[in-house]
Amino acid sequence: MGVFETKLAEMGITLPEAPAPAANYVPYVKVGDMVYVSGQIPSGPDGLIIGKLGDTMDVESGAEAAKACAIALLAQVKAACDGDLDRLVKVVKLTGFVNSTLEFTEQPQVINGASNLFGDALGEVGQHARAAVSAPSLPFGVAVEIDGVFQVK
C-alpha cells in the first residue's frame, strides 16, 4: 500500500473499485500527464446518496455526499494509474454540482466535503482550483456530482 492509501486507511477510508459509468461514456480520459475524470456520484453503504439541499438534506449531509464523490474520484485516478495512487502529482480542478433548491446558497460548504478530504488525505497535492454550482436536479436524484482534473506521473 502506498503513501496516499496508507493515509486514507488511517482516516478509515478504503478506496472501492472504480465505479462503472452509468451511460455511454468512459470513466476517465488520460492525455499526457493529465487525467480527466467524469462526474462521480455519491454512494454509501445503503446505495446512492439521494437528496436535495435546502429541502430534504442539510449541509452536513451534503458535505458527506461530496466526500463520497471524492473517494470515487480517487478510485478512478487509481485505476487510471494502473493501481498506483502514489502516481498522483496534483489535484488540479474540481467542478461540484449540488442538487439544491433555488434559495439554497451554501454550495461551497457542501463541496468542501470533497475539498477537505483531498486536503486531509493528500496535503499540498490535494490543494486545487474549484467551482461549486447549483443544479435543479442530478442523475438518479443524487445530492452531488463532482468531476475532476488530475496530474499524474
Rank of each mutant, 00 (worst) to 15 (best):
K52Y: 00
G47T: 10
T101C: 01
G44S: 04
L85F: 03
G47F: 07
Q127Y: 11
Q76K: 14
L73G: 11
G39R: 15
V37M: 02
P19S: 02
V142T: 15
F150P: 04
Q127N: 12
Y28E: 06
I50A: 00
A75K: 03
V142G: 07
A80M: 04
V59F: 08
G62S: 09
L88P: 06
A114G: 04
Q107M: 15
H128T: 02
A135W: 02
Q127F: 13
P19L: 05
V133N: 15
A68Y: 02
P139D: 12
G51Q: 05
T14D: 10
G47S: 04
V152A: 07
G113L: 03
L53F: 01
F118M: 10
C69R: 06
N99H: 15
V29C: 00
P136Y: 11
P108N: 07
F118D: 08
T14K: 14
K7F: 06
E60M: 01
K93H: 13
P16R: 10
I49A: 06
I71L: 00
V98S: 04
M1I: 09
A18S: 13
G148D: 10
A68W: 05
T101N: 05
M1G: 12
Q40N: 10
L102P: 10
G54A: 07
N99Y: 06
L8A: 05
I13H: 08
G148S: 02
E5Y: 06
H128W: 02
K52E: 08
L85N: 14
E124M: 02
A143G: 14
V89I: 11
L102A: 15
A70Y: 07
Q40A: 09
T14E: 09
L85Y: 04
L88A: 10
P45S: 08
V26S: 14
K7H: 05
I50N: 09
Q109M: 07
N116P: 04
V91C: 12
V149M: 09
F4G: 13
V144M: 06
Q40C: 15
P139F: 01
P108H: 11
D82E: 13
A68C: 04
N99D: 06
A72I: 00
A70W: 11
E17H: 10
K52C: 07
A121R: 12
V26Q: 14
V59M: 07
L8C: 11
A129S: 12
A9P: 00
A65H: 02
I49C: 13
V26A: 14
